[in-house]
Amino acid sequence: MTIKLVLCTAPDETTAQLIARALVEEKLAACVNIIKGIESVYEWQGKIESDRECQLLIKTNTQNVLQAFDRVSELHPYDVPEWLELNAEASSAYGHWLQTTLQR
């Protein structure tokens, strides 16, 4: 079964927790993993930056991915939050759990 796996960074654990809880409580994601302590190197406004961040792994479905993006955009402090949508193949059991969990 195909699901959406979204990569999104957050500047700190507090923001990551806020986003993760909102998405799961509002049934926009079935699960969000928070990986603490990554380092991101990127260009922003003509300057090379390096920051410690948290990586969010957001598991959702095609039906909810746009609403999830809108919600993250509301909660996120960055001007341009990372939002990378990947199609991922899930096991039948995990895919069923995800779809059942996201039913409103």
Rank of each mutant, 00 (worst) to 15 (best):
L5W: 09
L66M: 13
W44I: 12
P11Q: 10
K47H: 03
Y78Q: 06
R104M: 08
G46S: 05
Y78W: 01
S73H: 12
E82K: 04
I34S: 03
T2L: 15
E82R: 01
Q55S: 04
C54E: 11
A30K: 02
E49A: 09
W83S: 03
A29D: 05
A68H: 05
L57H: 11
E25V: 03
V24W: 03
G37V: 07
N61R: 07
Q67D: 15
L28V: 07
L18E: 08
Q99L: 14
L7C: 01
L98H: 05
I34T: 05
L56Q: 10
K59V: 11
C54L: 08
Q103E: 15
A20Q: 02
L56K: 10
Q67P: 02
A68F: 09
P11C: 10
S50I: 11
L18A: 09
W97R: 11
E13Y: 11
I48Y: 00
V72D: 02
V41S: 05
P77L: 06
L18M: 10
C31W: 01
S91Y: 12
V24S: 07
A20F: 03
T9C: 04
E43I: 13
K27Y: 01
D79I: 04
Q45R: 14
L56G: 10
Y42P: 02
T101W: 08
L86M: 13
T100E: 15
E39S: 06
I34W: 01
L18Q: 11
Q99A: 15
Q63E: 14
G95A: 15
G46R: 08
L5R: 10
T62D: 10
T101Y: 13
H76P: 01
G95C: 14
T62K: 07
N61G: 07
M1E: 11
V72P: 00
H76K: 02
N64E: 12
P11A: 09
S92L: 13
T100L: 13
N33H: 12
